[in-house]
Amino acid sequence: MPASRAVEQPGKNMKILKHTPVPILGQVKKTIELRRTKVEHLIMALVVVLFLTMPLFAGPYPLAIMMDIGFYAIVTMGLILLMGQAGQLSLGQAVFFGLGAYSSAILTTQHHLAPWLALMLAAIITGSIAAGIGRAVLRLRGIIVSGVTLVLNLIFFYLVLSLVDLTGGANGIINIPSLSPVGVIPDSLFDYYFLWIVAFLLLAFSLNLVNSRTGRALRTMNILAGGGEETAQVLGVNVMKYKVQVFTLSAVYASIAGSIYAHHIGCIEPEIFGAHLSLLVAIMAIVGGMASPWGAFLGAGLLTGLTELLGGVRVGSG
């Protein structure tokens, strides 16, 4: 029924009116100010030094936690761009994490590509798939998008489970080669630095994006921050184009994390497409705050750290 699509939902429009519009320009200005404070530079330097030197004083277990935080932070960062900037609620980030991991694993174990090449190809593959999915899903509005993307997890889970020849079915893929060039430094150390350098590069890219023309365009359509797609359209923003772009970008983030994960752990299984990862990452984004990409590190760190502290080991004998 094409007619029905043309009719806008009256309830929706009412709600936009209900919000007191947040001054968008003010928010941008605040963000820029934040970035430029000296104290922040100092703290950033401190954090970087802490990260670089951590393998010197911490054993494999804290490093493993840091790896987990890194994976989650990258995926969450993509989601924060999507949610915080464009106002689109995706619960399907695990799909792109999984796609990245599986593409990387298949390209290296079956086609014997170099891991770093596989990582890049995986990001391209995932990005293309995400662009297709985005075009279909982002025609929807509001919270429904989150429901549909949640269902995507399930579709990919069963797809991977069924394509046994390609994906190994329920047993997954093992013996995925490591990213590290043989013999230079230990694999886990290389993975640690590689992951965190990628994470900080992506952070820098995200911060720039937030303060760019694209970032401002995205925020005008952000229903969560008082904007709206109608507003954006009136301002001459090509809403669909930007939405699909940022959706694809968030998928590429997740794909990169997924690829590094696959090469780091060495074996993967279909369960990584599970909706639990998608939900966890979304909760991290909300806990960390969606105004700035920094929130990803906060959310990932808090949730991973806390669950590990509270629920890791139940000491007792029998």
């Binding site: 922040e40 703290i43 954090v47 802490l50 705050g289 920094w294 906060l298 760190g301």
Partner: peptide
């Protein structure tokens, strides 16, 4: 700002 401090703390 405050966030980053919390981050470090965590």
């Amino acid at each position: 700002m405050k966030r980053i401090a919390i981050l470090l703390l965590v």
